[in-house]
Write a protein that binds this DNA or RNA. Structure first.
Lengths: 143, 143
DNA sequence: CTAGACAATTTAGTTTGTCAAGTATCTAGT
DNA sequence: ACTAGATACTTGACAAACTAAATTGTCTAG
């Protein structure tokens, strides 16, 4: 087998396994969010919305890769629950900037901490593998 | 910092990055499934359902971590599209076993191949990193 | 043979998602 | 300054994915 082909295969295989790991943990994610009375998407939004960094609704739609009209209802529910608030855009009165409320920030912290608990599959790796995995992923995500 | 704590941190950080990578690729997954006129969940089902290995509806619900009643409609739509068929359970007439049709098998193959195309973040890793990532994930998933 | 367990479905209701149309606001060109 | 078109968001209508509770048909233990 030619070198290029073998390396394409390594990347493919790595990604395949990564997808498998992700799918295997989807249920765990759903359950974790449910602990906080959040739907999966609401958890996702909480992750995207950083404290002290208001985000226009449009940008949230972009980040979620969904239609802007979907975000309206999504934010309605989060706002109704007091986790998020809509503020008038500073310069452009068309845009509504989303900001976490105090409760939102607090919940976000708890959720993120819980979400980053590694699953069995990762936890049982040797310490060396765990560090190697971390380092490779840092490079992949360009840190 | 104590050694144990530092290592817990490596696993945590690795998992955090992994989750980030997964979220960043959610949109890509949705778009890829859409190319085949599949919703994300339908893609997931196609992945779970292996050829020549009929699966009771209950087991599918288990694999999807969702209520059994949800699977009914899900399978209705896949069956209506001719990708899947319900068969009477061999021994127990209560269970309905799901099997891919010929079309289902063919589509599954195309979908899986497309799904395993690595994203930018993985593709740009050095060949050595790609192999290391693959090997670590194999160990994590116990291959 | 019957009581309870179990697999799947039905029904009613929520959330997430799309698309098309509407409203308010901004921006360029004249 | 005025207007035409773009842009940000909302609304309304509708499908898919989900849950919980009740129902139907089948199995299994006593």
């Amino acid at each position: 087998m030619a070198t290029a082909a073998r390396e394409r295969t390594a990347a493919r295989e790595a990604w395949r396994l990564l997808v498998e790991l992700a799918f295997a943990n989807k249920g765990r994610f759903v359950a974790t969010m449910a602990e906080f009375d959040l739907t999966p998407v609401q958890g996702h939004v909480l992750r995207i919305l950083e404290p002290e960094r208001p985000l226009p609704m449009n940008d949230l739609a972009e980040a979620l890769k969904c239609d802007a009209s979907n975000v309206t209802g999504l934010v309605d529910r989060l706002e109704h629950r007091g986790l998020v608030e809509r503020r008038a855009g500073a310069r452009d009165r068309r845009v509504r900037e989303l900001a976490l409320t105090r409760d939102g920030v607090a919940l976000r912290e708890r959720v993120l901490h819980r979400m980053s608990e590694p699953p069995e599959a990762v936890a049982r790796l040797s310490p060396a593998d765990q560090r190697a995995l971390r380092d490779i992923l840092r490079r992949a995500l360009d840190r």
